[in-house]
Design a binder for these strands. Structure first.
Lengths: 207, 207
DNA sequence: ATGCAGCGCCGCAATTTTGCAGTTGTGTAA
DNA sequence: TTACACAACTGCAAAATTGCGGCGCTGCAT
């Protein structure tokens, strides 16, 4: 049998997906304002209270957003002393992905974001949490690194990593703004890699 | 919406039915000895431990047996001072029914009992619990009744009701033995009413 | 303007489910 | 015989779910 997840974890995932699907489906049918958290919970066959055990707001459920997290594998592979920009970029992409749970294939998220732009700001809100998380990782790396002792004498590690994450995150912000107009998954990838290229070209010019 | 049962109660009923169905189905496919409680739980999509929150033995799950209970309606209607034999008979039938939960229509119980006679004794075991419950009701009634004070001077109320329930229960025992050979629902009803008629004929002859 | 109903959301206690580490009994292979 | 796997079943503590009362806000009828 598939014993990768415990029964508990499997059910938790199922309930999460059921709530997100119900929320997204009902929203597509009636618009986000005509959907109540009660109706969503009923569709997912759980109590109204349980809804808020999984999502802190109705919008989070509609969009299927979770708090960001970093896989241990990524943490171990992270090395501040080489290719920092690349690494932080990839970390950001990965952590953003962690905020959008479940299988993307059958998720109704895309359609929802496209049809109800009011919901978009919520994703930016989550990007702040993502940055915070990544910043912590970078801060820790810098603090422990010999390569950064010089810079760290003039600035606090927190500030250094804030700046690094801001730069590395610029392409994602750029892509997110773009994706307002082109919300398919392919288009988002395209926007991101365009933005990445742009960053590489701009960086050498401004120093 | 149908708000007769709370979400909690509705789910409890569903889980009970899922476990019973899984147990009965797997038993029909493989025989009771080749079915594990784990497999049943897995089929019902609950943990192995939860199985034992619903049934105290594997056989109970296969047969779909619950502890007997008496509906309050029946309790209020019960009156020791009139038609006692009839009332206790009906009470017994009703309480026996309460031990066999769920919708009888789609239950696989019948088929299981017919094909695996080893399971039959378990039903008799439950009949003892049923008698106990009914006995308590009758005892309480007798204790509070003016009509029974005379008899109660020579015998304890417990013993009186024990005898009454035994007599009133004779047709059910008779029918249960018969049903070994004719296990359909109709046949059981027929056997029971035959036995009832028989009792009525015998009673006057033996006093 | 004023009340009032509806909805999002939270805290808390009761109930249920799960995981885990047993104990016991039974068949089976060495 | 001994050893050992396996399955029924239990106790207990952690986690999840539910019900319920309550808070704050918003829109709407009076």
């Amino acid at each position: 049998m598939s014993q990768l997840l415990s029964l508990r974890d499997r059910k938790r995932t199922e309930t999460w997906a059921a709530l997100h699907n119900a929320a997204a489906r009902l929203t597509l049918e009636n618009g986000p304002d005509r959907v109540t958290t009660e109706a969503i919970a009923a569709q997912a066959n759980v109590s109204a209270r349980t809804f808020f055990n999984y999502f802190s707001t109705k919008e989070d459920a509609i969009l299927g957003l979770q708090d960001p997290s970093i896989d241990d594998t990524w943490l171990e592979a992270f090395d501040v002393d080489a290719n920092l920009l690349d690494q932080v970029s990839r970390l950001l992409v990965n952590v953003v992905h962690s905020t959008e749970g479940g299988a993307d294939g059958d998720s109704l998220r895309m359609e929802v974001v496209q049809r109800f732009p009011q919901l978009r700001q919520r994703r930016f809100g989550y990007f702040l949490k993502v940055e915070q998380l990544v910043r912590d990782v970078v801060t820790e790396g810098i603090t422990a690194s010999a390569k950064w002792v010089d810079v760290a004498q003039h600035h606090r590690a927190e500030d250094i990593s804030r700046m690094i994450v801001l730069i590395a995150g610029a392409p994602m912000r750029y892509a997110m703004q773009e994706s307002a107009h082109a919300p398919t998954l392919d288009n988002q990838f395209a926007a991101l890699s365009t933005a990445n290229a742009l960053l590489r070209e701009v960086l050498p010019e401004i120093q």
